[in-house]
Simulated scan of single mutants.
Amino acid sequence: MGTRYTYIARHRARGAVRPVAIAIVAIVAALAASSWFLIVRPYRQQMQLDAGGAPSVPASGKAAPAEAAPANLQALDVNQLLNEASKALKAQRYLSPAGNNAFEFYLRVLAKQPDNPVATSALRETFPFAASDAEQAVNSRNFDEAQREIDLLAKADPANYTLTILRSKLDAQRKLANQQEQQAQDQQKAAQLAAQKAATEKQEAAKQAEQLQAQQALAAEQAKTRQQKPAEQPQQAAQPQAQAASADTAGAQDSSAVLLKAVQARYPTAALRTGQGGWVLVGFTVTTDGTTSNVHVIDAQPRHVFDRAATEAIDHYRFKPAMRDGNPVESTSQQKIEFSTGR
């Protein structure tokens, strides 16, 4: 009875082992297939690359120094061109320099043998890496070189959609560069106009300061002359001398209005933008408190361009009022204000 149970137990154990064995076999088969795709196949592709074929993965590491291009490309046969193309691939010279890169060598091979499998396969498999180089040329704004590389890619695969993307990026970068250049020119022009305006304002302020200084010097000289006249006259009787002194004192108390504060006229924006200049002759009344009133345009060239700016400036002028018998009185005056961009 015990022997029978032992037999049954062994039989069941064997039945349980079979699924485990099947699973192990499946795992081994999967590992073998993976080894083929991950180890054996890449190794064969690398061997093909060393023999002059095309790489299936991008080369890593720093590119080797470029070799000199063959002296006479037209005289090279297919095998020599393939050899030069293989050297260019190993040095990662996909599209540059011009005349000494893998794509041009392979295209020359196809020109001699249109159905050459090595050149056809190499151009197809290296296209993504070459397109990356062309994109770098676009991003660095080396537009002429980028256009040359894109044209070279188009000779290898004119229907590749990557070319559409590269051309769009190149066009966008060119437009952006043009916009930035235009903005720089506009900023430079605005800076020049601002500098010219500042120079004009400085010259006008200096001119007005000179005029004010001249007016003050003239007034001081007139006052000094009036004060010296009594001493130059012959001495007479006491009463005539007193009368003359009184008259001289009254004369010294008579004077014209003197400009104390001038205001720079604001240059109209439209005229400044177009570089237009002109002048305005303004008439006005100096009141007894030194302010201006009745400000009006007498003449202007051109009319109605600088009138408002000139009258607004005169409105802010301040004077020492005219004096008569020692008392401030109103007086009329004129002022010509010139506008110039300095061009």
Results as ranks from 00 to 15, higher is better:
residue 197 K to H: 11
residue 62 K to W: 06
residue 244 A to E: 11
residue 186 D to P: 09
residue 75 A to L: 05
residue 251 G to F: 11
residue 277 G to L: 00
residue 158 P to Q: 10
residue 262 A to I: 02
residue 210 E to I: 08
residue 241 Q to H: 04
residue 16 A to V: 10
residue 179 Q to W: 13
residue 271 A to C: 02
residue 210 E to F: 08
residue 277 G to V: 05
residue 23 A to D: 05
residue 193 L to Y: 11
residue 163 L to N: 01
residue 106 Y to E: 06
residue 219 A to H: 03
residue 271 A to M: 01
residue 213 Q to R: 12
residue 249 T to N: 15
residue 263 V to P: 09
residue 237 A to R: 12
residue 310 A to V: 08
residue 228 Q to F: 04
residue 230 P to R: 02
residue 88 A to R: 01
residue 311 T to Y: 10
residue 240 P to C: 05
residue 124 R to V: 10
residue 108 R to L: 10
residue 299 D to W: 08
residue 16 A to M: 10
residue 25 V to Y: 14
residue 252 A to I: 03
residue 303 R to Q: 14
residue 146 A to Y: 04
residue 234 P to H: 07
residue 68 A to Q: 15
residue 201 E to I: 12
residue 184 A to L: 09
residue 267 Y to W: 00
residue 327 N to Q: 15
residue 207 K to F: 11
residue 113 Q to H: 04
residue 138 V to Y: 08
residue 43 Y to S: 15
residue 304 H to A: 14
residue 218 L to C: 06
residue 193 L to T: 04
residue 145 E to V: 13
residue 223 A to S: 14
residue 108 R to E: 04
residue 70 P to E: 01
residue 155 K to M: 09
residue 312 E to P: 11
residue 162 T to A: 01
residue 63 A to P: 09
residue 107 L to T: 03
residue 18 R to W: 13
residue 133 D to V: 12
residue 172 A to F: 08
residue 56 S to V: 12
residue 199 A to G: 11
residue 50 D to N: 07
residue 10 R to C: 05
residue 254 D to N: 15
residue 53 G to Y: 00
residue 280 V to F: 02
residue 305 V to N: 00
residue 122 A to H: 00
residue 104 E to T: 14
residue 306 F to W: 07
residue 287 T to Q: 15
residue 316 H to D: 12
residue 340 S to E: 03
residue 257 A to E: 05
residue 115 D to H: 08
residue 259 L to C: 10
residue 189 K to L: 05
residue 6 T to F: 03
residue 46 Q to A: 11
residue 192 Q to F: 07
residue 84 E to N: 14
residue 296 H to W: 10
residue 329 V to S: 04
residue 125 E to H: 15
residue 244 A to W: 09
residue 255 S to C: 10
residue 339 F to Q: 02
residue 64 A to N: 08
residue 118 V to D: 08
residue 50 D to G: 04
residue 9 A to R: 08
residue 152 L to M: 13
residue 171 D to M: 04
residue 166 L to W: 06
residue 165 I to N: 03
residue 77 D to F: 07
residue 96 S to Y: 11
residue 149 E to T: 01
residue 248 D to F: 09
residue 318 R to F: 01
residue 238 A to T: 06
residue 232 E to K: 13
residue 47 M to Y: 11
residue 264 Q to N: 13
residue 234 P to I: 04
residue 37 F to N: 14
residue 266 R to Q: 15
residue 13 A to H: 08
residue 85 A to I: 04
residue 331 S to E: 14
residue 323 M to H: 03
residue 231 A to T: 00
residue 61 G to S: 00
residue 3 T to K: 10
residue 160 N to P: 02
residue 138 V to H: 08
residue 8 I to M: 13
residue 308 R to E: 14
residue 321 P to S: 01
residue 122 A to D: 03
residue 303 R to G: 04
residue 152 L to K: 11
residue 177 A to F: 08
residue 51 A to S: 03
residue 287 T to P: 05
residue 221 E to W: 05
residue 45 Q to L: 12
residue 333 S to Q: 15
residue 80 Q to P: 06
residue 156 A to V: 01
residue 175 K to A: 15
residue 317 Y to S: 07
residue 328 P to R: 06
residue 237 A to H: 09
residue 104 E to P: 03
residue 338 E to F: 06
residue 270 A to T: 14
residue 269 T to N: 13
residue 267 Y to A: 01
residue 205 A to G: 12
residue 246 S to T: 11
residue 315 D to Q: 14
residue 332 T to R: 15
